[in-house]
Nucleic acid binder design. Structure first.
Lengths: 350, 350
DNA sequence: GTTAGGTGAGATATCGTTGTCTTTCAAGAA
DNA sequence: TTCTTGAAAGACAACGATATCTCACCTAAC
């Protein structure tokens, strides 16, 4: 028995279509037809091929297939976000995975960490892998460099941040309006001195959030005390320090709006350590697990990452399927979730 | 000008090595040598090739390269975990990404949701994509089916749960010992009636955690009241209901150990709603963001997902690089983080 | 009976790249 | 001068698939 046919019991190389063809006694092309469920194969032959494939534990090589096929599809998409370990990005990734798996597509993830250079590195890596499409929350402020990849036929859907110098689909939260509504909510409780804490001003959404705050103040005809607006805050300790100084100042705010989760945590620590949690109103942006278990429970502007991801994935796959209609911008509404911390009236302190 | 050379300005197909070769006036193979930084190319030629590649925005096709090269490396690994949207899985993914990016390798993620069928689906998909290695927290309890892929040369590193019917590297938390230490801690505060809430008993770590609890009780010579042990709890509402019943019973526990995050949240809600948060001791498994902001702050057994991921990724890449030494099991220690809720003495209630 | 038409299956080229072999050419030794 | 040696660059095959073309073969119509 010097037979060369791989029976699947041997260690080593994987079975190829050639091996399956040899075992089934048919041509390579017939195996290809069976694997791709083409209807022009005799039923008995197809069964023979399938059983040979099963016996050899044949797994088609998707890369080889993509290389040769006309559409060049790799059954892979890239999901590139701020940081896959933060709940917002993680939820988006997971929700995209859910749509992708239904189409037999796998998802390559990447984190930009707000670093435009890392964005270049990662998008280039994805291009080398010939992903079928991108879902991207960019760190950079100019995305013209992606247009070439787009012209080569790879669709892009931007999430959380719109494309700049590029035409592409886009799914956003209504951050600006969400913050405006939250600020109005504070104003209705009588607050006039509201501290605003924002993330890096290079981030689109961070800018939108301040803008929403300014909108509401302007609308109410109130001046903004520049001492109460602190931007470019990224970490909890930084926010804790800033809020501590605000609270200890001669004319402290009666309410705080925290434009981001870590910043919210810092703010809460500063407030707690001064035992002011029942006197200073607090509203955060982005929901938190356990926000309801704090005392008072935290009022937040909650985004809807599942919905954002679902819209983005649906759009992307539609483009992959050949939709060439004009690009779309979808806005997913955010919701003010009232829990207590945002409803503390201004008068308590006065 | 009927020149066929792609200048990069045209819409359409991507530049290939052939295009670069034509523009640089060299052979295909020379371009390959330059792209792969082989030293046998004349410096001037190499420069010409590089500038042609840049002009055409040439991106090598990694799949084609993997297809042809002897080692078949796709520069892709799979990270398959319980649920990429939960903080533990998300942190592991992100930490693996960090190691991978340093090697120019991209990471495909997947979530099993404790569903063994989904595990089969996803591992097969990864095999079709010819990933270079797997980091996996399996949902199934028998991993023999992966041995074939392993024999074909793809290394596996198990995280959080050990391989069964398969020899592979493995990185675990010391869950059992961690829970034993936490239980001893409660016992030292005088607790004798401790409620234990566990996750699905099909999950390896869930079993380990109950076992750790039993170890500590046995060691202390205390009987375990079966009414106080509740397993197969997955959601916060389920846990809330169970803990509510426990607290309302004739002989309630003086302390609760919550074996998982969502279960901890349910327990806390039940306790809060009865205003017992300063009378019932609570210890959770897995750290939570904001655990320090609750009142009392939550004492937990904290795992170290970054460390687990780093060890796993390092091991995996060592295997990918050809290490054939015996498989290893690495145990990453967990830490009891004392914050207040776990230090409430039993006597307060008596 | 002959031929047109349709259908199923094989032969062959090819996708973009790397491995191997061959060729070219310059420099140094006999 | 001639030959050897070595390095650099090109020619060509092949990785595992699919696209396209061709070829049998069968049926139906004249």
């Amino acid at each position: 028995m010097t037979e060369e046919i791989n029976t699947g019991r041997t260690v080593g190389p994987r079975a190829t279509m050639k091996d399956v063809a040899a075992l089934a006694g048919v041509s390579l092309k017939t195996v290809s037809r069976v694997v791709n469920n083409e209807s022009t194969v005799n039923a008995e032959l197809a069964t023979r091929v399938r059983s040979a494939a099963a016996q050899l534990h044949y797994q088609p090589n998707i890369s080889a297939s993509a290389l040769r096929r006309l559409d060049g599809r790799s059954s892979t998409i890239a999901v590139l976000l701020e940081d896959l370990s933060n709940p917002f990005s993680a939820t988006i990734y997971r929700s995209v995975e859910e749509v992708a798996i239904g189409r037999g597509v796998v998802v390559i993830g990447g984190s930009f960490d707000e670093d435009p250079e890392r964005e270049l590195t990662l998008t280039a890596a994805m291009a080398r892998h010939r992903v079928d499409g991108f879902i991207i929350a960019p760190a950079s402020r100019d995305h013209g460099y992606l247009a070439r990849e787009q012209r080569a036929g790879t669709p892009f859907v931007f999430v959380d941040r719109p494309p700049v110098n590029m035409e592409a689909d886009c799914v956003l939260s209504d951050s600006r309006d969400g913050v405006t509504r939250a600020t109005r909510h504070l104003l209705r409780s009588g607050h006039r001195r509201i501290g605003f804490l924002g993330d890096l001003t290079t981030i689109y959404t961070a800018e939108e959030r301040v803008a929403g705050f300014r909108d509401a103040m302007r609308e109410a005809g109130l001046p903004i005390d520049p001492h109460l607006v602190h931007l470019d805050l990224r970490t909890a300790p930084a926010a804790e320090q800033v809020v501590g100084r605000l609270l200890d100042s001669a004319n402290p705010p009666t309410a705080i709006f925290a434009g981001q989760n870590l910043v919210l945590m810092g703010a809460l620590r500063a407030i707690r350590s001064r035992h002011l949690q029942d006197r200073i109103a607090v509203v955060g942006f982005d929901d938190l697990i356990m926000a309801d278990l704090l005392e008072p429970a935290i009022t937040v502007v909650a985004q809807n990452p599942e919905r954002i991801a679902h819209e983005a994935a649906t759009l992307l796959f539609r483009r992959i399927d050949g939709d060439t209609s004009p690009t779309r911008q979808i806005v997913v509404t955010s919701e003010l979730v009232i829990r207590g911390s945002g409803e503390i009236p201004a008068s308590v302190r006065d």
